[in-house]
């Protein structure tokens, strides 16, 4: 196995171990949540037999390790259990929600990449110019404002009684209407992008400035290379590595449900689903949605680390 292959193997193994740990925690926590599931399914006035029946059907009377084992094996074969609340397979509830969040996350992510990175690069190249000064000043203010404030402002201005330009809530599938889909997804994703773009921009700018002042960039210039080659070939690649890592992590947190923004825009994604499931003590749904959110984070971290190691040949593939 090559060095990189070995690193990849070790690092993936760690990710799997972490996810396994997450399943234990999720399972444990849902066991100690207050409230009896059967009561929740059937309502407060039920007979002993009713409870027993439900427990049996849901497998809740088996010993805990068996319940855990059934749950884990179920995950792999696609049997994610039944929702207490909706009496439907959990799979059918959670997966579409996850996909909607993924759409939101991807649109937001593209916006962050297309705005944050180029602006950061421009600010770094024209460091000290008025472009840089304006961009830097705006990002500083930006970073101080909590993201949902933008969301509320958008709803009030664009989606609210002032302009009525966009719908302020809900979701339309692209198969129904592309413009409807776009209209619904635009405001929440712009809000999400605005929350992250300042951070990405600032990181891109400062890393690239450091790189442009490095001794190897001086070497490149003193070889007689023109400024474009110096920038593109010698500076950007090294300057952008930390940003790539940051972006991978951001994608993780976008995918991991952006509870607040989904809530503000009543967007039916995994975040709102999790909140509902907590309200309703819908344990099977709650377990799976938390697990998926955690998986998004863990995988994003894995991608970030692997990308970093791959892009920067200096990193020794030591342990993980």
């Amino acid at each position: 196995m090559g060095k990189f292959g070995r690193y990849l193997a070790i690092r993936s193994l760690y990710s799997i171990l972490i996810l396994w740990g997450v399943t234990l925690v999720v399972f444990g926590v849902t066991q100690i949540l207050p409230g009896d599931p059967a009561t929740m399914v059937l309502g407060p006035y039920v007979s002993e037999q009713g409870i027993e029946l439900v427990n049996e059907r849901l497998g809740l009377n088996k010993p805990l390790p068996v319940q855990y084992f059934d749950w884990i094996t179920g995950i792999f074969v696609g049997d994610w259990g039944l929702s207490f609340q909706y009496e439907q397979p959990v799979y059918d509830i959670v997966v579409p929600r996850m996909l909607r969040t993924a759409q939101l996350a991807l649109v937001a992510f593209l916006l962050v990449v297309c705005i944050g990175v180029p602006l950061g690069v421009v600010a770094a190249i024209y460091r000290g110019s008025y472009v840089d000064t304006v961009v830097s000043a705006v990002t500083y203010v930006w970073l101080a404002v909590p993201g949902y404030v933008f969301g509320i402002l958008f709803i009030l201005l664009l989606g609210g009684p002032v302009f009525y330009l966009f719908p302020s809530s809900g979701y339309v599938a692209p198969s129904e209407s592309i413009s409807g889909w776009f209209g619904h997804i635009l405001l929440p994703s712009v809000t999400l992008a605005l929350m992250m773009v300042a951070h990405v921009l600032r990181q891109t700018r400062s890393e690239l400035i450091d790189t442009l002042q490095s001794e190897y960039v001086r070497t490149a210039r003193l070889k007689g290379l023109d400024e474009r080659t110096v920038l593109v070939k010698h500076a950007l690649r090294n300057g952008i590595i930390p940003t790539v890592t940051l972006l991978a992590l951001k994608l993780g947190s976008l995918l991991g449900g952006t509870v607040l923004i989904e809530y503000v825009f009543s967007y039916p994604g995994i975040g709102t689903l999790t909140v509902e499931a907590i309200h309703n003590r819908d344990l099977p749904v709650l377990q799976m949605s938390i697990l998926l959110i955690a998986a998004a984070y863990v995988i994003a971290n894995l991608i970030a680390d692997v990308l970093y190691t791959y892009l920067d040949p200096r990193i020794e593939y030591g342990g993980a």
Binding site: S214, E215, Y216, R218, T219, A220, R221, L222, K223, G224, L225, D226, K233, H234, R237, N238, I241, L311, D312, P313, R314
Partner: peptide, 25 residues
């Protein structure tokens, strides 16, 4: 003119070899 002189007619060997070579090329 300077670009065609640098690296071609006048070459410079910098001080710190570790930091003067591009790490990713």
């Amino acid at each position: 003119d300077l670009r065609s002189i640098r690296g071609n007619e006048i070459a410079h060997v910098p001080q710190n070899p570790q930091t003067s070579l591009n790490p990713s090329i």
